[in-house]
Design a protein around this nucleic acid. Sequence first.
DNA 1: GAGTTTGAAACT
DNA 2: CAGTTTCAAACTC
Length: 876
Amino acid sequence: MDSPMEVTKFTTTTAATTTAASTTEVCSESPVTNFISNLSPIKNIRPQCSSLLLVETTHYDYESKKYDDSLDDSTKTTGCLFSGSINQKDMDTTNSLPVPGHSYSSSGDVDQYLVDPVEVDHANSAYSVSSKLEQSDGLLPSAESKNDLMLDGNDAWREVDAALPFREQFGDDFPGKSKFGVEPVKIVEGQKFGESLSIDHPDIESALSVDNISKEQQFEISGLQASQNQQSISRRCLQFGEAQPKSTLSSTSSSNPRNNITSTRQPLSAMQLESSEASYLDSSTTSSKKLLVGLSQPMSTMVPPCHCGNVPYIISKPSGIGLHLNSFVNNVPVGCSATVMMKLADNSMGGPGIWSASGTSCFSPENIKSRSGSSSLVEKVSDINEVMMFQSEASIAAGSTPAEALQPMKPFNTLPPIEHYATPLSKIKVNVAHAHNFEEIKQPSPSKKRQMKKSSSTLDGDDCKRCNCKKTKCLKLYCDCFAAGIYCAEPCSCQGCFNRPEYEETVLETRQQIESRNRLAFAPKIVQFVTEFPSNNAEEGNGSTPSSARHKKGCNCKKSMCLKKYCECYQANVGCSSGCRCEGCKNVYGKKDEYGLSEEMMSNKGTEERLAETFDDRLEVVATEQDFLLAELYDSHYLTPLTPSFRGSKYLPSSESDLTILSSYARPVRSLQNSDSNDIFLETSKGTFDVNPYGQETDYNSSLMGDRFSLRCDSLVDMSNLTPLPNPSMVMSSASSKTMDWTNASRLQPGTGSSCYSSDGSLRWHCSPISPMTQLCGTKDHERVNTDSRYYDILEDDTPEILKDASTLNKSVKVSSPNQKRVSLPHTHMQELGSSSSGGGLKSRRKFILQAVPSFPPLTPCIDSKGSTNQKESDV
DNA sequence: GAGTTTGAAACT
DNA sequence: CAGTTTCAAACTC
């Protein structure tokens, strides 16, 4: 990371009480845009992006599991709210689960917890900053606007760690100076941690930025020292396994009605963008769950300047797979405010303009349904790097208006809001506040919170995930939160929960263990298989679900006939597939026998096993490829230490562009009646940019979401290279089989809005407003659909162009466009990439990968689009 | 809210 | 790999 990156956390929140008018105003471009434009957290990258920041301080009461607006004195004194993070020392000793005594079940425990030596270092670091966002141009009511920014010692610590490079670079200036020319936040109070600092300065970013907090000597000092002393810092990431980015963004969503967000310091080096879920979320969604999206990318390369208009912030593209696909895809309930954590790490892999955006969004199925009729967002993740994209579970607020709801998406495309996950006490949320999004940013009202809690279901009222684990400490897949890669949060009623930032290490270790048993344990359960034509699912007529979406593993229902949420397929609003072992399947979304994919498979294989096997295999393959690729990339381009988990992580789905991940959870099944369930498909195709080893700027062509039927990266590639991407909205619309009214989305995010333009004005990548994830269509990524099987070709090259082998390109690349139209590969693009990347055949790339990572488990044979067996193994 | 049912996850 | 147990969500009352 040659260039210092500045992590900015933006929290945009709208006071719950904010009037629509105010909201609108807030959302209006000018204020935000101006504001953002002034902010340049990330040099070079951000200037063009606009975002609103709202800082909220939240106090998390473990006992009550609620975030309190204010901290009581005791808490403040402990200050160590943020002690949650474990420093390296502790980490070493904390391999095992935390002592039960640490459970925050009781306040006393909490105190102990806070007192924990580990945290002591950071005790001082915690500051509560109350910032007035008056600057927001009245975005927030003054009363409401008061935001407390809690600086989490832990976070600060992390950030410090991440920032070390910067520190070196900047020397003493680092702590206090505003690198970005942002005026330091005016700190009224802050002597002791726990105290709130009132930030009068309108510039939220400055307020948020650590740099600006020059007065927070203790905070930074302690943090810096700690960081210095300990190079390695445990980062709170739900991205278990993700490569360690140097910088970590943690954000937490505060459910606090007052928009209190506890924010940790902003990582100096990395951009930490937190989007306050709440902000996006509809008031009801208070759950602050954090999804980690790991981004490992060189800061410098992080985000090409986006010209996203309202795009709140730009995030460097994640090179690593940090994002828990499940969480994004599945877990993030629609309308739920989940916090997505993005880690920004240096990623050698990423080329300069490469970056990914992630964001959290809550899609409220209902909202979506109501608004868009029926459609699902599909993002294809083709690149590991793009895993981040999944984060894009854009927080689609259960916004009042469809457009509004969709607004958040836009940021994703360009700069999805990133949330940091913070310790309970300190949480910073940065929201990319799109002017339009503001409404959604509203935090849940108390009443809604109550309702949310009231419901026992895993999904809160807004469909936010929450768990009620009692025995597993939320460290097993039983826990929806854990399984989703998110931390348990306020809405959760879990007992003895370790799935919290404080126990990051434990969480990561546990995650690794689980992954060791099952590589795909955390992979999205719902996979989108692209179909050329609509399936005959009963629901499809209604557009409830994409015909191609299916449960990865399939269900095993015996009694529920797949008509109850016991059935994961049904719960995900997807039809059963041949991979299901259910009995008496009556899944309204599609009976397993009806699954289109099975047809061919059946014909060819004639057995369910085959089908099931195929599903798994494909997934496996994808995962494997991903792993290899990652390993390869990191090995060769090693920029940042990879966490074991990262290497082992099988966030394949996310990484794999081939697979379309459907967030099963994202769109809760409201009811059968709601045929237009909001199926959100994150379909990301990895663009070459992700992996571009050379750092060349690659055109980030937005992948297209295309219709489930159509969209192929192939076509996209061409388009991307040659022409501006289609209007995202269109893509979106096409993406969903449902009648989802994406027009709204389009309105929300004009086609231009979705697109990101490089600083030079060239279109870097295209984001669909709806899909948080930018759809990166790498030149290489082309989703090939097995026309017959309608599976995405797993073989698609996710590998960097450099790795590609031209030999098989033609074969592998063969793709069918939505319209069956054959798309030629983007030769130009490839050329740009360099000869090395000459049209690499998928196979070749695979080979390359495999060779590079011999240690990986054997790959399961893959069937290419033509059904030929993947030769990876043989090659190896 | 308590108890039951269900099926996935975990364990053996 | 199959069978059993454990677990938490979904469901029912």
